[in-house]
Design a binder for these strands. Structure first.
Length: 858
RNA sequence: GCCGGGAUGGCGGAAUUGGCAGACGCGCUGGACUUAGGAUCCAGUGCCCUAAAGGCGUGCAGGUUCAAGUCCUGUUCCCGGCACCA
């Protein structure tokens, strides 16, 4: 093409100011406002069908805490889910795509104190503004199923579940150590303790307090929670590993060591937990945690020991705060008392050591220095006996070699172990556990790191625990018919000291349902993780006021086909949810064992190398992005900038590229749409010009790439790139298309339609506008996804790289289905190649049809 | 310490099975159009070399192979999780 032709063609395309119509330019605000209004006027647009002949698909993003503003992490999370939901709709599924609010929790109470706004009002206002933001972005949620956990319609079912748990013995009350923040004057959950400090008061060290608390017996399900992880093929390995570690199953043996001189001790028996009972003949001391009851008992009578023990406790606590327990130097003190090894009657000293933790196992161990690294270090330091009781199987191969200690592997045989000598470690484990059990001083057991779930919170803004305390009848559950126990609204949340609810006499004073006498209401509220443990079932039947949900309906929708959220919930929310489902299954409420079929954890949004945060001043506001570039650009960029499972590095200029791309699409269709043309739905003819054929081929390759990504690895960044490539080719083709024969018109119409459909999951506003511009009247939301046609995607000719001794030297063009022979000939006849191999000896000739040629010469 | 993930141009990132490294986007350079351009369009853009030719190049060091970002061995650094778990 000459320069003149080019500029003439361009002049035609360029929109000059005088003739500029308002619609000639991509105006995101105009388009998005227009369609947002249309979509809002049709509330059932995204509603899941109740009785559907279509296959169901339940796609869910983790529900947000209504802080009041959406951040980029939300936008990214929801853009992934929204794209998927839209894709599934276009593939004919009955899609359930709901949204709700995890709206109980401490920030509402803080806001109440700071702004003098009641928590409920503050929360509901935040919900309204976040919902408006979501609507503005155009997320396709079925709002008729909206769940707001802080409303009685929802939390009454938390209470109902609590009663069921209590009935089944899965909810119980016990005194235990809890994290206490002196500044908040309340208990903190483990997850709210960061490095030993309060998550909201970085300068405040969390204390331990003994309190009566409600617990849920999640440990009853520990084994199943662990085992079923293997079923979760659609979960990231990383999350499953984290859960396995969290559950921390460990098989071992409990062994009772009696005090050699019990006197009148209340703790005359020390039960130790060991995974290596096979080494028990090598035990040369018993080591106790500083907080062990026997230690406390002894310390009470011995001021010197008291001081030493207190110091050990302080050390452990400090190490926990700093987060490097494990790095502190091992030391301890002898108590002066002795215990008897039940296997051989040996009298061994009892020590207290700072490396023994009260909250794992029994808080007591038998110390076997010869076969445990930690015990070895300790024994060396304090000159305790070290006795080998395991020898390596292969020791005879090198008798002169000194056998190094500690020897900690299981690959050995027992020695110095009385009747158990000669057994392998594995056999000894079984035999010796059996021996202990038959003699009544021990038994095989399984220990978990997982603890029962403490759900009591001394806070106001949560679900009241539906329990009463009657002087006569003790703990009495609130009868089901009296639910919900309503959270009172008129309350001064600034009062400290105990649970805020305890300052509300109207709430506290109640009547005992058993005896009719006076009762005191439980004033603690539930952990908000209770709310999020089952909310996704409520979506299936959100307005049921007879039950949390209808079983049949839930069974239709469950499991969740795809759950999407941040990896920070890998343990807590996701393990509680799994527990809740198992409990509901056991009570016959659902059929499925697991709530979530596939889980996707998206990466964080970072900027300038750090997580976005106010203190760093690197926060990008979605509102600002939407105002500047439009919602389509904002959400599409969040998918384009990185694969969704990786961290996304936000670049201010990057979103401009997306806006530019969307403008290009807009302009192309604006110029080429032919809404009045009756030919637009005509079948695409087979005899296209080569240029048109190229476009058709590119179209089908793009369809394949985009479809594959939705079904496979979800690398939306690459499939958006593929759509960009298609548009780039359309631009190159454009002049040809518009001047060439009318035969191209049906193709051009076809390409534009399919392009718009493929754009719809990523940039729905623009897609709907363009769909209309193309003269289409159908609902794009449920338009069918384009079918990939391999025949149309097939190349006629391909380029084959030709290497000489592994280095690229030339490229030959051959028919796509060229045989090995043909490719070889083409390569050997290539001028550049001929020159290079001239006079050389051909050592090897590799031809990979469709891929390359490599000529190895010498 | 243990378990994951990662390291590729100036930047974000491609390369799905061992087969042309750097798709796509940003940025930059040049050109066109324009009263103007922070709009748009076209072209170029890994590094070295004046250009051609050529050489080098996916954290580092080796290895396997006709061929390695991709597989193997060792190693460094970064991010995340767990951590005296008996």
């Amino acid at each position: 093409m000459t320069t003149n032709d080019k500029s003439a063609a361009q002049a035609e395309h360029t929109q000059t100011a005088p003739g500029l119509e308002p619609n000639d330019r991509y105006d995101a605000q105009r388009i998005e406002t227009k369609w947002m209004e249309r979509w809002q006027s049709n509330p059932s647009l995204y509603a899941a069908e109740k009785d559907s002949s279509h296959k169901k698909y339940y796609v869910l993003e983790m529900l947000p805490y209504p802080s009041g503003v959406l951040h980029m992490g939300h936008v990214r999370n929801y853009s992934i889910g929204d794209a998927l939901a839209r894709y599934m709709w276009m593939n004919g599924y009955n899609v359930l795509h709901p949204m709700g609010w995890d709206s109980f929790g401490l920030p509402a109470e803080n806001a109440a104190i700071q702004n003098n706004t009641p928590p409920r009002e503050w929360t509901l206002r935040n919900i309204a503004s976040m919902k408006a933001q979501m609507t503005r972005i155009g997320f396709a949620y079925d709002w008729s199923r909206e769940v707001t956990t802080c409303l009685p319609e929802y939390y009454r079912w938390n209470q109902w579940f609590f009663l069921k748990l209590y009935e089944k013995g899965l909810a119980y009350r016990k005194k235990s150590k809890v994290n206490w923040c002196p500044k908040c004057a309340t208990v903190l959950a483990n997850e709210q303790v960061v490095g030993g400090r309060c998550w909201r008061h970085e300068d405040t060290v969390v204390e331990q307090r003994e309190l009566e608390q409600w617990f849920l017996r999640i440990t009853n399900y520990a084994d199943e929670l662990l085992r079923d992880l293997d079923k979760l093929e659609g979960w990231p390995e990383k999350v499953k590993t984290m859960q396995r570690n969290w559950i921390g199953r460990s098989e071992g043996t409990l062994v009772d060591f009696k005090l050699a001189d019990p006197g009148d001790s209340a703790n005359a028996t020390i039960t130790v937990f060991t995974t290596r009972v096979d080494t028990i003949f090598g035990a040369t001391s018993v080591q106790l945690a500083p907080e062990h009851p026997l230690v406390q008992e002894l310390a009470a009578k011995d001021p010197k020991l008291r001081a030493e023990v207190d110091q050990l406790i302080a050390e452990q606590r400090k190490a926990k705060e700093v987060g490097d327990i494990g790095a502190i130097e091992k030391h301890g003190v002898a108590t002066g008392r002795f215990a008897l090894n039940p296997f051989n009657g040996e009298k061994i000293p009892i020590w207290v050591a700072n490396y023994i933790l009260m909250d794992y196992g029994t808080g007591a161990i038998m110390s076997v220095p010869a076969h445990d690294e930690r015990d070895y270090d300790f024994a060396k330091k304090f000159a305790l006996n070290i006795r080998r009781v395991i020898v390596p199987r292969i020791s005879h191969t090198d008798e002169t070699a000194e056998l190094t200690l500690p020897f900690t592997t299981m690959d050995g045989l027992l020695v110095n172990s009385g009747e158990f000598d000669g057994l392998s470690c594995a056999d000894a484990l079984k035999k010796m556990a059996g021996h202990a059990e038959s003699k009544g001083f021990g038994k095989a057991t399984v220990t978990y790191r997982l603890k029962d779930w403490g759900v009591s919170r001394q806070r106001y803004w949560g679900t009241p625990i539906p329990m009463l305390y009657c002087e006569k009848d003790g703990i009495v559950p609130v009868p089901e018919k009296d639910l919900p126990v309503i959270l009172p609204e008129k309350i001064d949340v600034s009062l400290t000291g105990g649970s805020p609810l305890s300052h509300v006499p109207e709430f506290v004073n109640a009547t005992c349902p058993k005896c009719g006498g006076c009762a005191r209401r439980e004033t603690d509220t539930m952990d908000t993780f209770v709310d999020s443990s089952w909310y996704f079932y409520r979506y299936t039947d959100a307005h049921n006021d007879h039950a949390p949900f209808d079983t049949k309906t839930a069974n239709y929708w469950f499991s969740i086909d795809q759950y999407i959220g941040g990896v920070e919930h890998a343990i807590l929310h996701l393990i509680y949810s799994r527990f809740w489902t198992k409990f509901m299954r056991d009570m016959g409420l659902v059929e499925n064992d697991e709530p979530i079929h596939r889980l996707f954890t998206q990466g964080m949004v970072i900027k300038d190398g750090a997580k976005m945060s106010k203190s760093l001043g690197n926060v990008v506001s979605p509102d600002e992005m939407i105002a500047r570039y439009g919602a389509d650009s904002a959400r599409m960029y969040s998918l384009f900038a990185a694969p969704p499972d990786r961290d996304l590095d936000w670049q201010d200029k990057g979103i401009e590229g997306i806006q530019r791309f969307l403008s290009r699409v807009y302009r192309f269709i604006h110029r080429n749409a032919q809404p009045d043309h009756s030919d637009r739905h005509k079948p695409v003819p087979a005899d296209l010009t080569p240029e048109a054929r190229n476009i058709q081929r590119k179209l089908h390759k793009t369809i394949k790439r985009v479809s594959d990504d939705f079904q496979g690895r979800w690398h939306f960044n690459t499939c958006i790139a593929a759509i960009m490539e298609l548009v780039n080719e359309l631009y190159a083709f454009e002049e040809n298309a518009r001047t060439a024969s009318s035969a191209n018109i049906p193709l051009l119409a076809d390409v534009q339609r399919k392009l718009v459909i493929m754009l719809a999951p990523f940039a729905p506003y623009l897609a709907f506008e363009l769909w209309e511009m193309l003269g289409e009247t159908s609902n794009l939301l449920k338009e069918s996804w384009p079918q990939y046609d391999p025949a149309l995607a097939k190349e006629d000719e391909i380029e084959i790289p030709v290497q000489v001794s592994g280095k690229l030297r030339s490229v030959v063009t051959v028919p796509a289905d060229a045989t090995e022979e043909l490719i070889k000939t083409a390569a050997l006849n290539d001028d550049k190649i001929k020159k290079l191999i001239d006079g050389k000896q051909m050592v090897k000739l590799i031809v990979v049809p469709g891929k390359l040629v490599n000529l190895v010469v010498r």
